[in-house]
Structures are given as C-alpha cells and as structure tokens.
Design a protein around this nucleic acid. Sequence first.
DNA 1: CGCCAGGGATCTT
DNA 2: AAGATCCATGGC
Length: 296
Amino acid sequence: MNSSRNIINVHSTINSGQYFLWEKRNNSWYGIYDDSILKITLHKHRNNLVYEHDSFPRIEDWPQHVFRLDDKYDEIINEISKKDRIIEKITKEHFGLRIMRQKPIQCIISFLCSSNNNIPRIRLILRNLSRKFGKRIEWDGNTFYSFPTLRTLSTISQSELLHCGFGYRAEYVRKTVISIINQEIDLKFIKDTDYTKSKQEILKLAGVGEKIADCILLFAFDKLEAFPMDTWIIKHFQKKLDYMKTSGLDFKINDKITPKQYRLISKKIREHYGKYSGYAQQFLYYNIREENSRRW
DNA sequence: CGCCAGGGATCTT
DNA sequence: AAGATCCATGGC
C-alpha cells in the first residue's frame, strides 16, 4: 500500500511538451485522442488531490493506459535516480510527472510539426488541422474536433496544409501519410520490435530524423529507452560538463550535432540511465523549461 | 530588422 | 564524412 504507482501530477504531465492537444476549459483538462475526447478534473478531497475522468466516445478507464499507470513508477524513479544526482533531485521536485501514451498517427504528425518550431505554434497548427479536418464533437457543453483519420489526412491538399500553418513541413506530412497508407513502413513491427530496429524503421519517414524518431518511439510506441535530444537538452549538457565527467557521461557536445554525434551520445546516455532513459529525459526537459520560465 | 523555436533534408566542401 | 545552407511562420 501507499505505492506511488497511481500518483499523477496532471498539470506537469500535460504541460511538458510531449502531448500538444490538451486544453483547459473551465476547471477540466480536455485532450484529443484520435477520435475521442478525454476529460480529467482535479478535486481536493480531505487535503488530497484526486482526479475524476471521463471521455467521449467512451474509453473505459483511459487514464490507466494514457498515463501509463501500468509502469512501475517507483522502480523507474529509483532506477534513473540511482546513478545520477541531478535526476534524483528533480524526480523529487516534479514527482508524478508521467510519460503519456499517444495514438501513433496523431503523435507522428504532431512531432513532424515540431522541427525548428516552438510549442505554442505546434499546438496552434495541430488545432487548426483538427478544426478543419477532424470530426466536430459536441460534448459536455463544449465543441471539440477529433484528430483527422489517416484516410482524411491523405485527402488534404498542400495549400490546405499551408493554411493550417505547417509551412515547409507540409511536404513532410504529405509524404509521411502516403508512406503509411502504402505500408512502406510497418507500424506493427515498430510496436513489437526493439528500440534499435524500430528506430531504423521510423527513420524511413520523410521529416523524421534522430530526434523526432526518439519522440515518436517514446510517446507512441512504448520505447522507454528512447532519449530525445533537442536544443534544450543539448544546452543542458553543455553547461554540466564537469558534473558529467564525474557521473560517467563523458562527452563533448556542440550547438548543432550531426546524426552520427547524436547516435554516439544517445548510446552513452542510454548506457548511463538504462532502460528507462525516456523518463529521465522527460524530467530533465521539464526541469530545464521550468528553470527558463518557458511558455508551453 | 534579426533571432529563435522539442530539426531535417540537401547541397558543398 | 563533416559543414553550411535552406526551409515557412510567428513572437519578440
């Protein structure tokens, strides 16, 4: 008893740059999960925060799946804290920060949109896409739009994508949707196989490089060892060179890293943090963003 | 005006 | 193989 397995810091989790289609209306968070709307509301109960969940169309007990309550949270925190004092500190500060499971297509399109972009605008573009091409859903006194299906995505013209704000990424979206529809990549294989092979497969998609591949594998395909390295994570490591030498993370890092450097550093990091590296990354990323008072 | 934003593709050296 | 450049868009 008193296991932390079901502890969720809902606010931190939703606002940690991993899942862009969440929105607070009135006193509840609403998330788009392909063609369903998820709802979560926090209440105080005897000095404790408890949450109440709902969804439409109904998904039975969705928090279990989406917030990954099946993960052994305590064991994971312990594992990534063990050899790393920074992680040990920030996992305490942001305890309850979770990695969320996303729907593959939605996650892939979302992170295609993330290259050379900022989070508020990623959210805006994805909302534009859903509003124009998703299904209108009236529920709970609000209007929502589902995420477009793969079939619908395949019918959207370039100019319509540009009008959503995709910019040069519109071409990536078009090519990627075609690749998936034509089964040039195997999503089931990606789900079932190990990290290295699944990464090789997802990298076939246009607009998916090392970093975005890691995001997709971590957030939609259960590859918890994936450690996405964006500009913020890289800046963080640049500042902690002395710490890293003593912790076994011994590498030099420049502002811009090549794919080869990315793979080398990624390998060292995964050897350092272990099979739950993705959780370490999410805590680090959240902490860096908080320190820099970034807007989500 | 320039710089930056959860980078990646492509062209040049 | 590594480095330089371009990419569309909006906030500041």
